[in-house]
């Protein structure tokens, strides 16, 4: 019995270690590559023979890599701006929408919910061309605002996660507040929001990373290199220089991934809640 147990544990640990290596290897490899001298993808050893910070400094001094136009700082700033704005507006819209459909039983509510479900089933790119023409007409093409508007306008469609959460908040709390004379707006601000911190964190994180990582819409809307976001820029870096600018890409990728990874690490416990409430209540 004792030996059987230790054999089982031995194999379990072996598997865990293997999976662990597989999980972190790509990240470690990228970090190592970002410190490696030269610009090629190929390397004889896992640890670079020569450590260098040149690639990081190149990112901040685009004049050093004049052959490749990589205004990295500019991209970073663009991305930060777009992601933050979309997060604030998008989260607010999503919470309000979810609150309305979760708490009120009004005429047309079921129709509204089914419409949202149906709209969610269309592939997102189907609307790309129309949005493109639309933005040309509004003279918003190639501006960060275009992206912020597009992301925020779509935010309401993700209402089911928050709705699932709001549905579980007992009604008696609001009823008590209403008896004490609170109006709908006060109920939302003073009762619902303070109780919904986990789901607010989850939604903010999702809208932020969504904007941070999107390269499809961003690539379509932002035409000039200076307006690009990180996702568009890095994709282009790999696509057009393939394996000859890899170390530069690695450095750029590390700087992109670090803040997001830290955000995830801090909000880990909220993620489970968000994932489950969206999935089972949908």
């Amino acid at each position: 019995m004792k030996t059987k147990r230790s054999v089982r544990l031995f194999f379990s640990y072996l598997l865990l270690i293997l999976i662990g290596i597989a999980s972190v290897y790509p990240a470690l490899w990228t970090i190592m590559s970002s410190f490696r001298a030269g610009d090629s993808l190929f390397s004889d050893t896992f640890f670079p023979k020569q450590f260098t910070l040149k690639h990081y400094s190149d990112l901040f001094h685009p004049e050093n890599i004049a052959g490749k136009q990589v205004p990295y700082v500019k991209w970073y700033w663009n991305t930060l701006k777009i992601a933050t704005m979309s997060m604030i507006i998008g989260t607010l819209i999503q919470l309000l929408t979810a609150y309305a459909v979760s708490r009120f039983r009004f005429k047309g509510r079921k129709t509204l919910l089914s419409t949202v479900l149906v709209l969610g089933m269309f592939p997102g790119f189907m609307s790309m061309m129309a949005i493109y023409i639309f933005l040309v007409q509004l003279n918003l093409l190639d501006t960060p605002w275009a992206l912020i508007i597009v992301y925020s306008a779509g935010a309401a469609l993700g209402l089911f996660v928050a709705k699932g959460f709001f549905d579980t908040i007992p009604r008696s709390l609001e009823e008590a507040a209403t008896i004490d004379g609170a109006n709908h707006w006060q109920v939302f601000m003073k009762i619902i929001l303070p109780l919904s911190k986990p789901i607010i964190t989850y939604i903010s994180l999702m809208t932020f990373t969504g904007a941070w990582m999107d390269f499809i819409f961003a690539g379509l809307i932002l035409r000039s290199r200076d307006q690009w976001t990180l996702a568009v820029g890095l994709f282009n870096l790999v696509d057009s220089y393939s394996s000859t600018a890899f170390t530069l890409f690695a450095a750029g990728a590390v700087l992109v991934a670090v803040p997001i990874t830290i955000l995830f690490a801090f909000t880990q416990r909220f993620l489970v809640e968000g994932l489950t409430s969206g999935a089972s209540k949908g």
């Binding site: 999976i19 662990g20 999980s23 972190v24 790509p26 990240a27 490899w29 990228t30 990373t209 941070w212 990582m213 390269f215 996702a231 890095l234 994709f235 790999v238 890409f249 690695a250 990728a253 992109v256 991934a257 997001i260 990874t261 995830f264 690490a265 880990q268």
Partner: peptide, 15 residues
């Protein structure tokens, strides 16, 4: 094991 989930998808895929 959560690390792959935390890295932005487009970064890890390009890597």
């Amino acid at each position: 094991f959560i690390i792959p989930y935390a890295i932005p998808q487009f970064v890890s895929l390009l890597v």
